[in-house]
Amino acid sequence: MSDQAQKPAPSLAALRAEIDRIDEAMHALLIERSEIIANLIKVKGTQESGSAFRPAREVSMMRKLVERHRGILPLDTVESIWRVIIATFTHVQAPYSVHADLTVGEAAMRDSARFHFGFTVPFVPHMGAGPAIAAVAASKGDLALVPAVSVAGAGAWWQSLEGETAPKIIARLPFVERPDHPASLPVFAISHPAADAVMAEVEVHSLRVSGWGAVAARTIAPLAEVIAEPDGAFDGAALLISVPKGQTLAAITDALVKAGATIRSTALVGSHATRYTLSGAHPVAAAR
């Protein structure tokens, strides 16, 4: 008879005692983490400016989380727990609010904000990207969440990010994308970026063009993600172009010119990490 066959199955009481032990250990680790954060606050003092949000570090943490996860606990739950821990401790270090553009729908945007930032971080609703960005511009470290998709009547809100001192796109959420994500609405996080916190795998540019039409749109669709709004003359457009890693803005503007468009202006308005998607059970970095 094998050792495994001889070993009695653990009792319910013993299993529950193990759960209690693990719960206590998890709580102790959170307390220990908070003590380290308290020391971090003392060390950092006033050395940093801009948003306390650190997208480069958070992307790294979330990717590692996905790669090491296993077992019956849904990834959604693990991701949500980690997001709340990260966002809450960030808020403890430097209090901030999340200003959300509700034009795409209150439920979807509120789900995204609560999934990624929890309930400790104040949620401030706005009807439009413009007011949300203006609130961030007037703050030291607040965030704005704006849909990363085309919304009818939204206007070219990204043009307010063009100035040197204007807020910038610093992240695209969710960090880990999948079809069944509980907060699947793609959103841009906008804030005053800290120089050492930028994740520049995907650059986001604001373009003004003339000669925009179906041909130009089809030409650059395979090269980059584009949100377009009418701008000026009947054939003018304001474009928000996310240039993926391995691609260049020059190649995209060259393609637009060959398609009959004229580039009137360009401006870098932010950057974010490459979209990280799940294909089946395996994490895969998306093309853009």
Results as ranks from 00 to 15, higher is better:
Q47N: 10
G155W: 05
A94D: 15
L223C: 03
L102S: 07
A216V: 10
L145E: 09
A107H: 09
P222W: 07
K7H: 07
D231M: 08
A281L: 10
S265W: 07
I85T: 07
G118E: 14
G50M: 05
I170C: 09
Q6S: 14
A28Q: 15
A200K: 11
D76E: 13
E67S: 03
P179F: 11
W158S: 06
L185F: 00
V59G: 04
Q93E: 14
D196H: 13
S150V: 10
R54I: 00
R70H: 13
P193W: 03
G130E: 13
P131E: 06
R21A: 15
G246Q: 11
V136I: 10
R63V: 11
R21E: 15
A17Y: 05
S139V: 11
G50K: 05
V176H: 01
A281K: 12
Q4F: 13
A138G: 12
V187S: 07
A156V: 03
A273N: 06
G105N: 11
S2T: 15
S242F: 11
T120W: 10
A5Q: 12
H27M: 10
G236K: 01
P74H: 04
H181Y: 08
L161P: 04
E67D: 04
G280M: 05
G128F: 01
F53T: 06
V209D: 04
A5N: 07
S210T: 12
I19N: 03
H192N: 05
E48N: 08
G105T: 11
V78G: 00
H282Q: 13
D23P: 00
V226D: 07
H272P: 00
K7S: 07
A25H: 08
K168P: 03
R68V: 14
H126Y: 02
S210Y: 06
K44Y: 02
A17F: 07
A135I: 04
P222N: 11
Y276G: 00
S279I: 12
A267F: 03
P283L: 05
A154N: 07
K258C: 03
I170E: 00
R264N: 15
T46E: 11
N39F: 01
G211D: 03
A138V: 02
E106W: 08
P131A: 07
G118T: 12
F117R: 09
F123Q: 11
T248K: 12
T77F: 11
H27R: 11
S34R: 14
V202N: 04
P147R: 03
V187I: 14
G50I: 10
I263S: 05
L161E: 06
V146H: 04
A5W: 05
A267T: 08
I81M: 09
A200S: 15
S49P: 00
I252N: 01
G71E: 10
R63A: 01
D20V: 13
H272I: 00
G260C: 04
E67Y: 02
V121L: 03
S191M: 01
T262C: 03
A250G: 15
P244D: 10
Y96E: 02
D142Q: 06
D3L: 15
E48I: 01
K44A: 10
D76W: 10
V121G: 01
E164P: 01
P222G: 09
S184W: 02
Y276W: 11
A189E: 01
T120F: 12
T120R: 09
F89N: 13
V43D: 13
